[in-house]
Simulated assay, not measured.
Amino acid sequence: MAVTSQAPARDGATATEEQPQPAPSVTRRRAGRGAPRRHWPAVVPFFAFMAVCFGLPACTLAYNAFTVIDPATGASHYSIDNVRHSLTGAYATGLAGSVKLSLLSAVLATVLGTVIAQALLGARSGALRKAVVSASGVFANFSGAPLAFAFIATLGTTGTVTRLLHLKSTGFSLYTFTGLVLAYLYFMVPLMVVTILPALDGIRAQWREAAASCGATKAQFWRHVGLPVLMPSLLGGAVLMFGTAFASHATAAVMTGSSVPLITIQIANALSGNVLVGQENLALAMSLNMVVIALLVMAVQIPLQRRSNRWLG
C-alpha cells in the first residue's frame, strides 16, 4: 500500500509523490526482534540458579584439579600432576571400565528399548500401552541402593532365583561386570522406551502407505525410510543411555564395591582420604575427566535431538 503526499513542483504546481511502505512481513519481523528483549528479566533467576549451583562448583572443581599441595610446606601451586595421575595406572583402568560398562549398557538398552517400544505401538489395546508407559516411567527412576538390594535378594549368592534355578552351579555371579550390566538394564531399558516412543510414534502412516504402493516390503520400508528418519533419535537415545550409565554410582557401589574398577567408585574412595599424601585433589581431577566426557556427550546429543525434532516434529 502506498501513501501519496503533496509536494511543491518547481513551476509552482503541486506534484504527487509516492512513498513506499515496508511490507507487512518486514514490519512483523522488526517488531518480533525486540519482543524477546522485553522478557529477558524473566530468565534472570534461572541463570542465577545455574551460575550458583553449577557454574561455581564447576569452576572450583577445575581450579582445584590443577592445584597440588606440597606435603612438606603445605603450600599449594599449579600443576598438572593430579590430571596426569588420574589418567594413569589404576585410575585409567577405572575410567576405561566405566566407559566400557556404559557403552555396552547403552547399546543393549537402545536395542531392547526400541524393540519393546515398536511392539508397544503395534498393540491394539490402548490400556496396555498406558500401563507399559506408566510402568516404564516408574522403573526408569528405580535405581541406586534400593535396586542393588533388590538384585542381591533376587540374584545374589543366596538369592531366591539363584537357588530356584541353581545359577550358582553354572558359575553365574551377580557381583561381576555382567551382573552390573543386568542391573543397569533394569532402569535403562524403560528409560529408552520412554525416550524413543515419541519418535516411533512420529513415523507417519502416509509414509508406510506410499512405500507399500510402490511395492516396498516392511523390511525395505524400515531400511530405506524408517531407520534413516529414526537414526538421529536412536543415536540421541544411545548417547543419553551412555551418560546415564556413566554417572551411576550407588548401584555399583552397593553391589560390587571395588571388585569392579569404576571411576565413580574411585572418586568416592579418593574423597574419603584413600590417596597418597600430596594427592588430596586427585578426586577432583578424576571428576574433571568425567565432566569433560559429559560435555562431549551433550555436544553430540543436542545436534541429534534438533535434527530429530526437525524430521519428526
Rank of each mutant, 00 (worst) to 15 (best):
Q118M: 15
L87N: 08
N274W: 08
L304H: 03
L112Y: 06
F139M: 13
F47M: 09
N82T: 07
V229K: 12
K218W: 13
W40H: 09
L227G: 06
F221V: 11
A205D: 15
L147C: 02
K100T: 14
L56Q: 10
L262C: 01
A117E: 08
I116C: 08
G113I: 02
T73W: 02
L121K: 14
V132P: 05
S125G: 11
V115E: 02
P24T: 05
A210C: 11
L200N: 02
L165H: 08
F151Q: 00
P261Q: 04
G273K: 00
F54M: 11
P146K: 00
L165V: 07
I293M: 04
F151P: 02
R204W: 10
L295W: 06
V300K: 07
S79N: 05
M1D: 15
L185V: 03
A294H: 05
A117P: 07
F242A: 04
V132S: 04
S76W: 00
V225E: 12
P45E: 03
A252L: 02
G243W: 06
I196W: 01
D70Y: 06
Q19W: 15
L61Y: 05
G273L: 03
L288T: 11
G113H: 02
P41N: 06
F246C: 00
P57C: 05
A210E: 11
S134M: 12
G237K: 01
A42G: 12
V229D: 07
A127I: 11
P36R: 02
R38C: 07
G257M: 01
P198C: 05
T160C: 07
L200D: 02
M290T: 10
V138R: 04
E209Q: 15
G171D: 09
Y91Q: 11
A145P: 07
V277E: 14
A268G: 09
G144D: 00
A250N: 08
T158C: 03
T195V: 12
A48I: 05
L121V: 11
P8N: 13
I69R: 15
I80F: 15
M255N: 05
S134V: 15
N64E: 14
V43T: 08
A62R: 01
M255C: 00
A42S: 09
R204D: 13
K168L: 11
T114P: 00
P36D: 02
G122E: 13
P71C: 07
M1N: 13
V239E: 01
V189A: 03
A135P: 03
V3D: 13
A23Y: 10
G278K: 02
R307W: 09
L120V: 10
K130F: 10
L288W: 01
S125C: 10
R208L: 14
V43E: 03
A135R: 03
V43A: 13
T14A: 14
T110V: 08
V44S: 05
A65R: 06
G94V: 04
I302D: 09
L235H: 00
S272C: 03
K168Q: 15
S213G: 15
V277Y: 11
L155K: 00
L227H: 08
A35N: 09
E17T: 13
L227P: 10
A75T: 10
T158G: 10
A245Y: 05
Q279K: 12
P41I: 03
T170F: 12
S287F: 00
K130D: 13
A247I: 03
G137T: 04
L288I: 02
P261S: 07
G273N: 03
F47N: 06
T158S: 14
E18S: 13
F142T: 03
V291E: 06
Y186T: 11
L104A: 13
L104N: 09
V291L: 15
